[in-house]
Simulated scan of single mutants.
Amino acid sequence: MPIATINIIEGRTDEQKEKLIEKVTQAIHEAIDAPIPNIRVMLNEMPKQHFGIAGQSAKKLGR
């Protein structure tokens, strides 16, 4: 059972997250011929102040 874990910064809509899950599932299916019902995708959404870029939080950088 393939499991994809994706870390993203908060701020995406539910529709965007659904699309991401769908596309990642399809990519795994196509790449390794895994049955779609066996594929799992986990999104870890984190606050912008918990993600650092070049020594500053994404929140501070306005991302």
Rank of each mutant, 00 (worst) to 15 (best):
P47H: 13
K23S: 13
M46Y: 13
I36W: 02
A27R: 04
E45L: 01
G52C: 08
V41D: 02
E45I: 10
I28N: 01
I32C: 14
T25Y: 02
A27W: 03
P37Y: 05
L43R: 03
Q16P: 02
V41P: 02
I36M: 08
A27M: 03
G52T: 08
Q56D: 10
P37A: 05
E22I: 00
T25I: 02
K23V: 14
M42T: 11
I53T: 06
N44I: 10
T25Q: 03
V41K: 01
I53L: 12
K17H: 11
Q26S: 13
V41T: 08
D33V: 01
L43T: 09
M42R: 06
E22A: 10
A54M: 10
H50C: 09
I28Q: 03
E45D: 09
D33Q: 10
Q56G: 00
Q49A: 09
I39L: 08
P47I: 05
I39A: 06
Q16Y: 11
A54Q: 12
T25S: 13
Q16G: 08
Q26G: 08
L20E: 04
K19P: 00
Q16R: 06
L43F: 05
A31N: 09
A54Y: 14
M42H: 05
I36E: 00
K23D: 15
E30T: 08
E22R: 05
F51P: 00
Q56F: 12
D33S: 07
L20P: 02
E22D: 12
M42P: 01
Q49V: 12
G55I: 06
E30S: 12
K48Y: 05
Q49C: 07
V24T: 12
K17C: 13
G55H: 05
Q16F: 11
P47A: 12
E18P: 00
Q16D: 13
V41I: 13
K23I: 15
